[in-house]
Design a protein around this nucleic acid. Structure first.
Length: 257
DNA sequence: ATGCCGACCCTGGGTCGA
């Protein structure tokens, strides 16, 4: 089963790109982030015309996540537990052919001297707790994909010195990402490309970042042991980023045998 | 250079993303 993650940066603005990508890449499951629309405005008809059903957790203007699937989506759960006050639509999970998947839009956290950084760290703590207390104990295959807004290592950013104090690279952020791995999760791309460096999933629109290949690797697929045992492939698909009116992210996909 | 681009809001400029 091919499972992809893609931060689309507005599903409305990106619909032609997303439809074209679904037709070309043919993922069984697509985990989308940054829909920037409410549930009622999600283009479900166009998506379903390509054979995908959708589970959506939308929000006006900001955030918004979805699971698209060629196979039935069961037991959909919206929102990350742990803070009833948190109304940002950044998390949705569901089960497809026995695999529990989640689409994650982790907070950016910048600027680090404002309230957004502690919100990011608290959100990551909640995610670690949810994985540890609810997801892993089921011993189900899990694929947690999304825009983690996290650069795992200095090989994953074009200029690590310039980014050292960014929320995406800060030790406090990286420590919480490592906490997920320490629970027993496998980062799919790194597992299959242990010696690769400077392979990115996001390039800023400005200053010719894409043309100069100055990006960051922040879109990840995390697998439980039961899913990692079946990991057959994982790649970054740079094709969509090079097209007209692209998202600033590009999809990352894995194949679970 | 420190939001240069591109999206959102609902009217032309403010806010946000990473």
């Amino acid at each position: 089963m091919k499972i992809a993650t893609f931060n689309v940066n507005s599903i409305k603005a990106r619909l032609p790109r997303v439809l074209e990508w679904l037709e070309e890449a043919q993922p069984d499951v697509a985990l989308l982030q940054e829909l920037k629309c409410q549930d009622a405005d999600f283009p479900a008809l166009e998506i379903s015309s390509l054979g995908y059903e959708a589970a959506v957790h939308g929000q006006k203007t900001y955030n918004g996540v979805a699971i698209l699937s060629k196979h039935p989506i069961e037991d959909v759960f919206r929102g990350l537990p742990g803070d009833p006050e948190d109304e940002q639509a950044r998390y949705i999970e569901g089960t497809i052919r026995g695999i529990r998947v989640a689409s994650i839009y982790l907070p950016n956290g910048n600027p680090v001297d404002g309230p957004k950084f502690p919100y990011k760290l608290a959100w990551m703590d909640r995610l670690v707790a949810h994985i540890r207390d609810t997801l892993l104990p089921t011993e189900q295959p899990l694929v947690l994909g999304g825009d983690y807004n996290l650069v795992p290592g200095d090989d994953d950013v074009y200029d690590p010195a310039k980014w050292a104090d960014d929320a995406l690279c800060k030790p406090e952020s990286r420590a919480r990402f490592r906490a997920m791995l320490n629970l027993g999760l496998t980062e799919a791309w790194k597992a299959l490309h242990p010696n690769a460096a400077h392979q990115y999933s996001y390039w800023d629109y400005v200053q010719g970042r894409w043309q100069k290949d100055e990006g960051v690797r922040i879109d990840h697929l995390l697998l439980s042991p039961q899913a990692a045992d079946r990991l057959a492939a994982c790649e970054i698909d740079k094709t969509p980023r090079g097209k007209e009116k692209p998202s600033d992210h590009t999809p990352v996909w894995c194949e679970i045998a």
